[in-house]
Design a binder for these strands. Structure first.
Lengths: 289, 289
DNA sequence: CCGCGTGTGAACATCCTGTGACGATTGTCT
DNA sequence: AGACAATCGTCACAGGATGTTCACACGCGG
């Protein structure tokens, strides 16, 4: 493993609030003075950052896996709008702060509507730029309420966010980062069907291109590991043409007759544990192993 | 309503289009001119909004269940910072846009650091205020966005958008994607008759060519599956020369004793369905099979 | 009674997913 | 630095599920 270094910062489905420090920022600008001051400040904050002086294709920005981007639209010339639109379309979760020279209200409105998160007019104080970037990034992390309090369990598996691992009978499944993020995302959906596009955008951070099989492949890897450790259960269900649904379902058939009444089962706690929606009534969990 | 269909039209993978409409905004300001213009604009947008002219306790704001708040800190006087801090602490998900008179960089930075999402300096154009509020709200809606999934029921069937499935007595009908979209569309029409062309254009996304039987075929498949799982009910009714209407109707003659009480019958939808004869009087309900 | 719209079943074409393997990339260890 | 291992993303293929079209039977409406 040892994956978790940069793991959570970008595109984290349920990031840990702790890692507010590690941020990847890029600044696209030509004003050397501005860049210099800003860079120094970013250094002191310990934010990983990168300066781009020339118009970078939107696709290239996507590959940088940024948390936020500060951009002077002037650098991009006339195609700035198109560029901005494409970028926002591809990375809905990227924080974009436009920091540019004098502009009209209409321009600012247009930029914000296209997907920019903030718009600062030069000249401006670098400290304010920093503060606005922070503000944008702060808003981005959703899971404010979802701290790593409760380990999720379903069927035989237990998903521990604090360990970045899933376990069956205390034995780790040895999930990789992506695999874990996937199972965590699915399990957190509480039995709802998640569409491929949504899974992709929440795990990878940008929008999926048609024909991408990444989600399928990782679902397969997950299923393999789940099946190996918990053969009598099915967890990930395919919904053809839509996506996947996570729900623990036992393969043991109608074995309730087998369950001796002598063993008192804590139905309440058990039911809560099951992620399987309240329906799927015949959960019958004869954990007779 | 009809999540999946509308979602389809705008190619939005996860976003429920309807959610963008329901916004609750409050404006805390004393500048009557500003308020007036802003209010008018908010009205036209259809956003539910409320104007507060006097310093409202932070707790009171909490009770308003807002999506966003536009506030002139000047109204709050010297306690503005404390007020802001408390509010942000209590409602981390509330979008807060400070819109106030001249300020120093330090003040703006402080406000943003305390939790404000944006800071606009007056005088400013109301359209920009709107755009910035939208930008702030846009980011926020992801996490809770998918809560409005209310199971729709009619007769014995229950349509669950979160599972892309319909159920009868908790047993799935195993509908395919198109079948589900169709039943969802029909059911959402609340008993109105939908013309073939409309059904087609809303499910397929483009206009139907004359002679296309796709809708008929899918109606048939749906009827088959419905009949198999719920034989004592009729759901989809043909209106000759027009289209189809969805309404649960029991075949049991007044002997609803048969109807298992476990599932409440949606009488309302049924009644509405009977009345709905929008098109030329010849309703003549040929639903005799 | 005729014309047209609809129900029905099946054949056909298409799309979608499961699967295994391969190269690319990243990070670690020596 | 270089080799090595793990992980990730893409590809091609196969099988199956799904969507579409067609021909024919039937009933409605005029």
């Amino acid at each position: 493993m040892t994956d978790s270094t940069t793991a959570r910062d970008e595109a984290a489905p349920s990031g840990q609030g702790s890692a507010s420090a590690a941020l990847r920022i890029a600044v696209l600008d030509r004003d050397s003075g501005f860049i210099q001051v800003l860079s120094k400040r970013l250094d002191r904050l310990g934010w990983e950052h990168r300066v781009l002086a020339s118009p970078v294709p939107a696709d290239a920005v996507v590959a940088m896996r940024l948390s936020a981007l500060v951009v002077d639209l002037a650098v991009l010339g006339p195609q700035a709008w198109e560029w901005l639109e494409r970028l926002c379309g591809a990375l809905p979760d990227l924080g974009i702060v436009v920091c540019t020279g004098p502009s009209t209200v209409a321009q600012r409105v247009r930029g914000l509507r296209l997907g920019a998160d903030d718009w600062i007019t030069k000249p401006c104080h670098p400290e304010e730029v920093i503060a606005r970037v922070q503000s944008v990034v702060r808003r981005r992390r959703r899971p404010s309420g979802r701290t790593e309090t409760k380990p999720l369990t379903a069927g035989e598996v237990e998903i521990r966010s604090d360990r970045f691992q899933a376990f069956v009978n205390e034995a780790s499944l040895d999930l990789t980062r992506r695999e874990f993020e996937l199972i965590e995302l699915l399990a957190a959906a509480e039995g709802r069907v998640l569409e491929r596009e949504e899974i992709y955008s929440r795990l990878w951070g940008y929008t999926m291109v048609r024909g991408d099989r990444s989600v399928d492949v990782f679902v397969r890897k997950l299923r393999q590991k789940l099946e190996k450790s918990s053969p009598r259960w099915r967890y990930i269900h395919t919904h053809f043409g839509i996506g996947y649904r996570f729900a623990a379902e036992s393969l043991d058939v109608e074995a309730d007759v087998e369950v001796p009444a002598s063993i008192p089962v804590d139905w309440d706690a058990r039911d809560q544990g099951e992620l399987a929606g309240p329906h799927e009534g015949r959960e019958l969990t004869t954990d007779s192993l």
